[in-house]
Amino acid sequence: MMTKPILVLGGTGKTGRRVVSRLRRRGYEVRAASRKGPTRFDWNDENTWEPVLAGVGAAYLVDSMLDDAATSLSSFSKLAVANGVERLVLLSHRDWVAPAGEEKLPCERAVRESGAQWTLLKPAWFSQNFSEEGFLRRQIVDGAVVLPAGDGVEPFVDAEDIAEVAVAALTEDGHGGQAYELTGPRLLSLAAVADEIARATGRDIAYRPVPPAEFAAQATRQGLPEDFVALLTMLFGWIAENRFAQLADGVQRALGREPRDFTDYVRATAVTGVWHG
């Protein structure tokens, strides 16, 4: 059992807060770090790095999502090892095709070369994006899911599963050097997503695919930042292309059980009333 504190970066985020909760329920000492929390951590302020690492035995890492994310992560990971951190678990992404001359997922390389025992988590789209991400939740509340995803499918994964795999990698043996691709058990289109939520809530919710340009224009009119609109347009375009339309066995390999089904997520979420405005 890990006896030293466990650091969780992004401790208030979608996966981070779930990792923190699970670790604490199991009796681990947790240091939940974020830009605005009691334990402050900021990728852009290196003065916050060493204090959060003091005495830590393992760390859950979420990169900055900035252009220099890999450089920062490399420096932080090496600093962590120098401070005695033995395990690093990185929330990464499923593999993608990099442009010519560009390294694919350089943040993963930063962690692999840190000198620590590492584990990579490579999830599909989070199921929770439909209830905790303001943009998508708002569309569902309004009854019209309007996205440039065509008829593409995605193996949506429950953030609870991601957190459970992270906790296993942080606290148990046998996960070092593993790259876990994490998906749900089914491929779902956005139309199927809308139908499932509609049935669970008793509401009329329809999916309408639109061209990328129309989506971008509408999202911009709604006040979303330009860079976020560009990111969303790219990501939904990948769903339209079926770029990641494959099931993976990361949850099964890490936890010895099947991943949670999207229907289970929808039923549990519907009772909270989050999709009723």
Results as ranks from 00 to 15, higher is better:
254 A>D: 06
218 Q>C: 07
11 G>V: 02
256 G>Q: 09
229 V>D: 02
210 V>D: 08
61 L>G: 01
55 G>K: 03
34 S>H: 04
154 E>V: 15
90 L>A: 03
37 G>L: 01
127 S>Y: 07
121 L>K: 00
44 N>W: 09
205 I>G: 08
269 T>A: 12
235 L>F: 06
83 N>L: 14
61 L>I: 11
238 W>Y: 11
76 F>W: 09
30 V>F: 08
50 E>Y: 10
243 R>S: 06
179 A>Q: 06
56 V>W: 00
188 L>R: 14
110 A>R: 00
253 R>M: 14
221 R>D: 08
231 L>T: 13
113 E>Y: 10
53 L>M: 08
205 I>R: 01
84 G>P: 03
132 E>I: 03
85 V>K: 13
143 G>M: 15
83 N>D: 13
35 R>N: 11
19 V>A: 00
260 R>Y: 08
71 T>P: 00
67 D>H: 15
260 R>T: 07
219 A>G: 04
260 R>C: 08
272 T>M: 06
220 T>N: 02
203 R>M: 12
151 D>C: 12
113 E>S: 14
90 L>N: 00
241 E>I: 05
155 P>G: 10
247 L>E: 06
198 A>T: 08
33 A>C: 08
255 L>A: 09
61 L>N: 02
80 A>H: 01
131 S>Q: 06
119 T>H: 00
211 P>G: 12
182 L>I: 15
77 S>A: 15
262 F>W: 12
144 A>P: 07
51 P>D: 01
95 D>Q: 05
172 E>V: 14
214 E>K: 05
253 R>S: 14
18 R>H: 09
20 V>N: 01
115 G>P: 04
175 H>I: 06
228 F>E: 09
47 N>W: 12
220 T>K: 01
175 H>D: 04
186 R>K: 14
97 V>Y: 04
66 L>W: 03
172 E>Y: 10
206 A>S: 15
127 S>I: 03
262 F>H: 07
88 L>S: 01
6 I>Q: 02
15 T>A: 12
69 A>C: 09
226 E>T: 15
59 A>D: 00
57 G>W: 00
133 E>Y: 05
62 V>A: 03
201 T>A: 02
56 V>L: 04
252 Q>L: 15
87 R>E: 05
154 E>K: 04
64 S>Q: 07
228 F>R: 07
118 W>A: 02
93 H>A: 08
173 D>L: 13
240 A>H: 00
224 L>Q: 12
82 A>D: 07
229 V>W: 04
161 D>F: 10
110 A>I: 09
216 A>K: 03
160 E>S: 11
76 F>A: 12
55 G>D: 08
124 A>C: 13
157 V>A: 03
78 K>M: 07
